[in-house]
Structures are given as structure tokens and as C-alpha cells.
Amino acid sequence: MSETLEQSFVKQLKENQNIVHKICRLYTADSDAHNDLFQEITIQLWKAFPKFRGESKFSTWAYRVALNTAITLYRKSTRSVNTVTYEAQQHFFVQDEYNHEEEERLKLMYQAVQQLNDIEKALVYMYLEDKDYTEIAETLGISEVNARVKMNRIKGKLIKILNP
């Protein structure tokens, strides 16, 4: 029995949903906005899906559409602009293998990342996902050299935020 396009899409998105969740967490401050953005990304992915021919992995294709949606198409509700609440990341750092001190450092680091602007967050996201600079540059549409330079600047900015 052959799968319909819709079935195949839903299955793949369900398997890869953490990609979308991670982007939502980076770009929104509370769970309402998170769900809002998740839905918008799902709609955009579905709209673009007929063009996805499986040349790349679903995950590689999906994160790009998701980032573009978060940066360009999504309109934040005004209430969540610049007010970072940390409820969304409460579970994130509760991982057994980290000691308390490391957990604290992680939390501070994550809060620092939250203070970056949309473009900087996109670079950090791809850095955290271990994408190489060729891919980062291609995704954003900038040169590789400039992507590298920008990433170094962002690291500097994060250090400043952490050690004011």
C-alpha cells in the first residue's frame, strides 16, 4: 500500500520534530509562543514539502525551512518580545550526568544565548547542531568567511554577557 504525500510528511515530521522544537525554544519565550511557532513551521514545511525531493535528508531540509520561518515569516506576539522567561528550559538541564556546578554554567550560557538577536541565534543554532561553515553560509546566504567572522564575534559577545 502506498503512502500518500500527507502520510509520509506527517510521519517524517513526527520523527524529526525535535529539530523544530529546538528552534522554537530558541526563538520564543513561553510555551504559548512555542506552540504557535511550531504550528507555523509545520504549515510552512507542508507547503514546501512537494518541492522536497529527498536529495538531502528530511532533517537537513526541515531545519532550513524552520529557521527561515522563525526569522522571516513568524510575527511574534508583542507580549513575548524581549521578555525571556525560563520556564521552557526547566527540563533541559536536568540531566543526571551533570553536576550542579556545570548545570549552573549551562543555564547562564543558555540565558546569554537567549539575549542574542534573531540572526545571531540562527548562527548559534547551526553551531550547536554541528553544521560546518559551508552549510551555515549557504543556509543564511552569506559568504563562508563572513559566517566565520560573525560566529567569532558572537562568541565574544557571549563572553561579555557572561562576564559583565
Binding site: Q44, A48, K51, V65, L67, G141, I142
Partner: peptide, 9 residues
Amino acid sequence: STTNSTKQL
């Protein structure tokens, strides 16, 4: 198209 690079989009 959302599949373009961010800048192009």
C-alpha cells in the same frame, strides 16, 4: 520560497 537561503527569501 522558504527553501531559499534566508537572505534570498
